[in-house]
Amino acid sequence: MKRIEKIRIFYQENKKALYTYALSLTRNRESAEDAMHTAFCKLLNRPMLPISLRPYVFRCVRNAAIDDWRGREASKEALFDLEAPSMLPEDRALWNQIGELLFELSGDERETIILKALHEFTFQEIATLRRTPIRTVISWYRRGLEKLKNMIGEEVK
């Protein structure tokens, strides 16, 4: 299969995940959009595809999002799609709450939860992406999930 065709398929399969990930890093729509565009430009300019494509593209998006975000003002962009017509009002409230609470966590914890729980990354993939030991990634995930659970419990009370 052609290299460009492979990238196109990857884009179609992962565009939502990449956009959500970029939004979780910046909370700025323009930064997230530019980060995605930059990552795919970089990928298309490479003569060969990297061996592990998914961590590579997510890392490109991460680097681009962080670089771009430094120069922009923070905004309160919603992390999840709350406008879907099929969504029930109680679900909308739940996802709005979870989206807000995720931003109460530290950046590392939020990022790990987004990658692991939402996009089904393995701890090893996250460790590769973040260039961090796997134990640190596991501790970020556990701690973040625990905090999130407690915060949801407090909100319900």
């Binding site: 956009y19 565009h37 999840f80 939402l118 949801i152």
Partner: peptide, 28 residues
């Protein structure tokens, strides 16, 4: 909580980003 998070409604990419990326594919 993990199960709930797996069902998260991820936001779709805006059309203009889709167009920009598609243009990059065509140029490549």
């Amino acid at each position: 909580l993990e199960k709930i998070l797996k069902k998260a409604p991820c936001r779709d990419v805006p059309d203009r980003v889709g167009r920009k990326v598609e243009m990059e594919f065509q140029q490549a």
